[in-house]
Design a protein around this nucleic acid. Structure first.
Lengths: 214, 214, 214, 214
DNA sequence: AATGAATGAGAATTCATTCAT
DNA sequence: AATGAATGAATTCTCATTCAT
């Protein structure tokens, strides 16, 4: 029995390895080419598999794409949640913590956030199941709510100037994504220059300065 | 002679109307579907023309897409330049002016920014002429420089806290584009809610507050 | 009445001029591009007319093409017939006369014979009416028969070695067309060298030498 | 190891069979319809494959067309070269040998000559690679040179009447191609009658008779 | 009579997806 | 489990042809 168990375990592990292998390849190709221009064949080649094999693990191209978004968002969620739940941090520190969480997520897999941007750009995602769309939106909603909650807390404590909490969550998110996008685009033209971290820090400093009650 | 002239003028106008008719349809479809998913047939249907007719006015899909950029980029530039060159405005007012210029551009032709994002996301637009790509990058460069110059001026006048001027231009640009992207994505899910203008105003308030010397 | 007549005559002449104008343009384009690759628009441009105008004079592209073949063949026919009917010529002289007739035809409008070759290459002529095909074949048949008849006469007079008369007509025709084709192809690569006339003369010398009884 | 080898060999063979299957279908359609009128779909249908499958083996229509030439041109060359290099043949026999070589080539792959004619007629084949065009011209050049050399040898030996060697090569080639073209056109109208071989033999008899010193 | 503008009917080509092995 | 081979269903683009003016 033990042997069977082991075999089963090994099988499952192998399967997961394969799935990741595919997702990794897919991520890169999707980011480089966009959803439509990325071809299954190219992804397969990158994954060192045949196109047909991908279909053993993912029902179709859309599902493969969607799977990337979900894991990305979930990863992001855990990062942000860790900051949010950390009771030892002040509101200001949490804002900084969020920034670092986002940045860590980006650093861990620079590519994954771009997937979300693609989502935001709404490129050909009509064939995603409503279920998945809901899931995606649900997670990002949760992230935004945590940010909003921290801002609200700050306002209540008299630390932050008053304002609509959701708007501030949006702004924070926008600063982050906007900078990623922009710095990345610039890096593409001039790969040597990478000012993302310092500019991001600066942006959040300003943001904090801007919302703090004097 | 006058008659011939008039006829010529009328013909030219008709042609321009047709071009705009196509561009308007294209804009909408490109925004909704993204470059790849948008089909010429769909654009044609939207424009109430046959696909073949589009090819009378645009050499191919890429050119049609590119044509949207050129117009609007120039519009963007003139908007921003007008603020920059306005000697009666203070630095702070210019920052606000930039925001309004950007927003006006966005309102005038919402497509442009999305297209820039596509470019930033490196969506298979390699078939665009180098000339156009250079133009795109050139204009955005000019815009960034104007923003940076205003920030620098503010620092020199002791109004803004010191810092790298380019970083601040990047941040401002990132806030703007990030918000467009994000609010647009949200609007897609819930078309009724459109907080872009108010959130943008708020974001720039915060940004200004954050960079002003107290 | 005289005035009406004159107007009618002028009209007819104008019409014929227009038809020739179109045919001349068509000839050149068809020869340069082949039937399928030649576009009506290109022909129209060459004729300094609009595509629509061509359709006032020719029912469609096929008919336009066919009209060229017919006139060419008819011209050829008159040339060859003149030699054939010339009672003062010997058999040998008639063979030489045929060659000159063919060459004259070719010189008169170097392009027209190539049209026939296209016909021979059977490029996309399925849409020609049977009537026209019959006409085309009928005329070329007549030409061949005249050549064959001269050969036969020569055999009967003991001047030419015996053989199947049609085969010899075919050979004569083949030598001519083959040389046109070949020399023309060479001229394309090196426009300065034009050996058609001399090579053609030589070929017919050899041909005559070869069929003459010693 | 042997097994793997065998499988590899079998796979390669299968691939070659498929390629030939496509080429055979293509040959027939191209000959019947000409390059432009032939459609990939028709070729695919003839080959009992889907159009898409053809693209697994040939990059595009042009390449498929070109592939037919390359093979056959090489075949033509080897045939003619074999005659040319055969030291046991007299000049006269070589001329006859050339004819047979040409005819064998024609029989083996009737398409090649038609394709050369298309080239000669300048049928929009501009998308062929310069490399291939050069090869085509190169090989035909070589063939012509061999023919010319044999004629020259005959003249030097006092067997053939004097004359420009290239002209005689041209004539021989023209007789051959002209007859192919002509007989083929006739066969199209009346498929039962195929006089090519006998007429060709006769033509070369006459040609030889015509150039021989009496 | 002439044409500018428009289009329907294809054509080549691509690619996600399937299936026999 | 993995895949090579095959394909149906698009999609872009072309062009002969029409028609209102």
């Amino acid at each position: 029995m033990g042997i069977e168990d082991r075999k089963k375990r090994e099988k499952k592990m192998l399967e997961e390895i394969r799935i990741q292998q595919i997702q990794n390849a897919a991520k890169e190709i999707f980011i480089r080419k966009g959803f439509n221009s990325a071809t299954m064949e190219e992804i397969a080649k990158k994954a060192e598999l045949s196109p047909a094999t991908i279909y053993l693990y993912f029902k179709n191209k859309d599902e493969l794409y969607a799977s990337l978004n979900l894991i990305t968002l979930e990863y992001l969620y855990t990062q942000v949640e860790a900051v949010y739940a950390n009771r030892s941090l002040s509101c200001e520190e949490k804002i900084i913590g969020f920034k670092d969480a986002l940045y860590r997520t980006y650093q861990y897999k620079p590519v994954i956030l771009k997937i979300i941007f693609h989502l935001q750009l709404n490129e050909g995602l009509l064939s995603l199941s409503q279920e998945l769309l809901d899931k995606l939106n649900g997670v990002s909603q949760l992230v935004m709510e945590m940010i909003a909650a921290v801002y609200k807390e700050g306002v209540e404590k008299g630390i932050f100037i008053p304002g609509h909490k959701n708007a501030h969550a949006d702004i924070l998110w926008a600063v982050f994504t906007g900078l990623i996008l922009w710095e990345d685009a610039k890096k593409q033209l001039n790969p040597k220059k990478d000012f993302l971290k310092s500019t991001l820090d600066r942006a959040f400093d300003i943001f904090l300065r801007g919302i703090k009650v004097i």
